[in-house]
Design a protein around this nucleic acid. Sequence first.
DNA 1: ACATTTTTGCAACATTGTTGCAAGACGGAG
DNA 2: CTCCGTCTTGCAACAATGTTGCAAAAATGT
Lengths: 144, 144
Amino acid sequence: MKKEKAFKSAALLDNHHLRRTPVREQVLGLFMDKSHALSHSDIEQVLSGEFDRVTIYRTLTSFLDKGLVHKIPADNGQTRYALCSDGCDEEAHHHSHVHFSCSQCGQTFCLEHIHIPVINLPQGYTLNELNYIASGTCKGCNKA
Amino acid sequence: MKKEKAFKSAALLDNHHLRRTPVREQVLGLFMDKSHALSHSDIEQVLSGEFDRVTIYRTLTSFLDKGLVHKIPADNGQTRYALCSDGCDEEAHHHSHVHFSCSQCGQTFCLEHIHIPVINLPQGYTLNELNYIASGTCKGCNKA
DNA sequence: ACATTTTTGCAACATTGTTGCAAGACGGAG
DNA sequence: CTCCGTCTTGCAACAATGTTGCAAAAATGT
């Protein structure tokens, strides 16, 4: 792992009150390398030699709890995770960006700069969280 | 099963080019009884005595293909299905209504009359499908 | 009535996620 | 530095979810 990246992961872990451990730094490193969201199995394929399956699950759960990553639902049931860009901590997540899922390459991206439009819920409903997933073909696949 | 409902399911199956079979009529009956989306396991719990698990999976898949139901993604990986209200067939689904997932009762509802707001994707992306899931507390749970 | 296609059940398997428990690593107090 | 309690990890086992192949049963058209 490059020095700069290692430095950044360490800082991220510190800021989110997570101890620096090998799994956490490796997993965090993967997220920083890739521009798309990762599933548990994506990570497992890379790190299964080094760490246990269960450990990776628990790593992801702790990242989620501490506001380091967020969960992205998909209609095929394949949960994915992506780094939170800002301001999330153990108190709460505050995103409202759109996610894009490419049906060609299968990857999911955060469209950080596209904000989820707000809707008016019917009387009696209380809002807590929004998820907006657009599917189609991504930039890379359209070019190819 | 009531006569009227039986009549309706039969018509629905016919319209969507699916043979009338016991599983299909029963499953369709469940969807018509409930106002919320159903997961495979919801259905299995009711009909497991009567039909095989695999048959229920295949029934849901065929309903999906023929445009009788649509799939609703959830961030906990629990796929749910709900009846299509109109116009869907084996060619394509055409919904763009919002889904609401109640974190208290765990149920998911179609907000048929709330249309998903359209966004502008960045250059190079092609759109195919939209999913908008709002989470929070539903009407029923807020009243209680 | 017969041949063909669809649908179903069963068994087996694959993937995904969770839990309990014991061992190891870490951090703080003395 | 050492001891103690807490956090983290690995392992085994389990649970839930979903898929596939194959053979029997049911429905369809001729």
